[in-house]
Nucleic acid binder design. Structure first.
Length: 521
DNA sequence: ATCGTCTCCATGGCACCCCT
DNA sequence: AGGGGTGCCATGGAGACGAT
């Protein structure tokens, strides 16, 4: 239309209507010439409010069917039904004629811009219907300098109306955002900043537009009835994957609509169910809520249906340990329980201890191995064996510790015994020497000294060097002192205060030595 | 390499309870 | 009655992981 020659436009695939964007970011249909006057009169009427203009243009505009191709499943349609009224395009009457645009599988051919073929091809190549929506950033007049960005943003905005909330964007958009810098208006792969409220005026009380995070206004909590119905539906469906959860969503929403309860998305229902399953142990009442018990029971049923079982690292280690142990003892692995023919860990060991299998049997054998290792009876046996092994190991360590302590005690007692014997020998020797010295006519002469050394030489109990000191006093008289290792050098002399050192000026009698040493081991 | 699913995390609103 | 605190819930973004 020549009225807006510089504005981007969009050709709807089913109706064939060309929508043009006005300077205020609103979209008007580029209708056939026959309908333009009536529509323009409505649009340009100053007496009508935006809501009135919107209402009056509805009969004029050939509304495209609010359907999508069969590639969009029911959940998305439900999502559309709940989101469309709150879409920014219809909110607050701000945008007068935002068309109810819907992307179909062939949407790429419906996008056209005369000056930006690249944008169209980009949208077609990346599957704009799955591209990451550029939420909260509608095209503004300032963005006119980059029409390519407008078209890309438009295509993404259009697709956002059908994207399930919280669903991960498809890989092309992600790959483009991560690996390709030439994506027009490609947002960073990092977490996006919150929606810029300055881009569009939105009532804070009704933040229902996409792009706003947070709970939708008016969304009530789950009550007991909701949870009970959810559990009953989940028990009936036993969902394993996303499609099954969509079936749960459908059933739940049918029930919700019939009872006046709020409808919820599959993700919300799944999250609620998993929350019930993984609920933590309460600190107050020790009784498990019935809903939690039911959820855990249903979870077990789902696991049985899927043929899976919860694993933890301990069990994996058990399997590995059992396999390793039995590999090391594969020659004698039949002596343990005498149940080699039963499925269980022995099956695992037989499989691994035998010759390598043919590769084509590897998958089946692996499955059999896993199944056998997960057998409850086998697990119980492994648990008992592991417990016994742990007890045996602990007992062995305890006995070793006791043995070390006993050896240490024995050594200490032996040292004490040796010390006592040495002291007894010294005392006996001293007593004998004193007895010799006190005999009449016996002095500290060479004969007694040699006899003493002979005694020391005969002693086999003295393990250390023992010295005998003979002292002659300057004023007459002499003394013989036996000095043991560790004894003070002047022991026995200082006590009497007679002398504490050798008298160097006194000539020694012949045959005497000032000090004689005898080493006795 | 691509795609789908699952999970975690951040954000924000609603519902409820308690206190003033 | 109103405000603050807390828990629950929804939403969106991103990464991890497995299947194809």
């Amino acid at each position: 239309m020549s009225d807006y020659p510089q504005q981007p436009f969009f050709i709807h695939p089913t109706s064939g209507i060309c929508y043009r964007q006005l300077a205020d970011s609103s979209w008007v249909p580029d209708l056939p010439q026959s309908q333009l006057p009536s529509l323009r009169s409505i649009l340009e009427s100053d007496t009508l409010t935006p809501d009135q203009r919107f209402a009056r243009t509805l009969p004029v505009l050939p509304m495209p069917a609010a359907t999508t191709t069969n590639s969009h499943h029911s959940s998305l349609e439900n999502d559309h039904d709940t989101r469309t009224p709150s879409h920014p395009s219809f909110e607050n009457g701000h945008n007068t004629l935002n068309p109810p645009l819907h992307i179909t599988s062939d949407h790429s051919t419906s996008l056209y811009h005369p000056t930006h073929e690249t944008a169209r091809s980009e949208a077609a190549a990346t599957g704009a219907g799955h591209a990451q929506p550029r939420r909260g950033t509608p095209a503004t007049p300032e963005d006119d300098s980059d029409d390519q960005a407008i078209m890309a943003g438009l295509s993404r905005e259009l697709a956002s109306a059908h994207q399930a909330g919280g669903s991960r964007p498809s890989a092309p958009a992600k790959a483009k955002a991560k690996g390709r810098a030439d994506v027009p208006q490609a947002s960073s792969s990092k977490r996006k900043a919150p929606h810029d409220a300055a881009d569009e005026p939105v009532d804070a009380k009704k933040r229902t537009a996409p792009g706003f995070k947070g709970r939708i206004a008016g969304a009530p909590n789950y009550n007991n009835t909701d949870v009970g119905e959810l559990l009953s539906i989940v028990r009936a469906v036993l969902p394993i994957g996303g499609r099954a959860w969509q079936e749960v969503e459908r059933l739940h929403n049918e029930w919700a609509e019939s009872t006046g309860r709020p409808t919820r998305s599959a993700k919300s229902l799944e999250a609620k169910f998993k929350q019930l399953v993984c609920i933590r142990k309460p600190t107050g009442s020790a009784e498990c809520p019935p809903h939690v018990e039911a959820a855990q029971e249903i979870e077990d049923l789902i696991n049985e249906k899927a043929g899976t079982r919860d694993l933890n690292d301990d069990e994996i280690v058990d399997i590995a340990d059992a396999s390793d142990d039995e590999n090391s003892n594969h020659n004698t692995n039949d002596k343990g329980k005498g149940k080699a023919s039963e499925p269980g860990p022995s099956t695992v060991s037989r499989g691994r201890s035998q010759a390598p299998r043919a590769p084509r049997h590897l998958g089946a054998d692996l499955l059999q191995t896993i199944s056998a290792s997960l057998d409850p009876q086998a697990r119980a046996e492994r648990e008992a064996e592991r417990t016994a092994c742990s007890l045996h190991t602990a007992h062995t360590l305890h006995l070793s510790s006791q043995l070390r302590e006993a050896n240490t005690t024995i050594n200490n007692l032996r040292n004490l015994l040796h010390e006592a014997e040495r002291r007894a020998d010294r005392l006996e020797l001293r007593a004998q020497v004193m007895a010799d010295l006190q005999q009449p006519g016996a002095g500290a002469g060479p004969s007694s000294f040699n006899r003493l050394n002979n005694i020391l030489s005969d002693s086999t109990n003295l393990e250390h060097t023992t010295r005998v000191r003979c002292v002659r006093y300057a004023d007459g008289g002499a003394a013989t002192v036996v000095i043991n290792p560790g004894d003070d050098e002047n022991q026995g002399l200082d006590d009497e205060g007679v002398m504490s050192s050798w008298d160097e000026g006194v000539p020694q009698p012949e045959g005497y030595e000032r000090e004689q040493e005898g080493d006795h081991e």
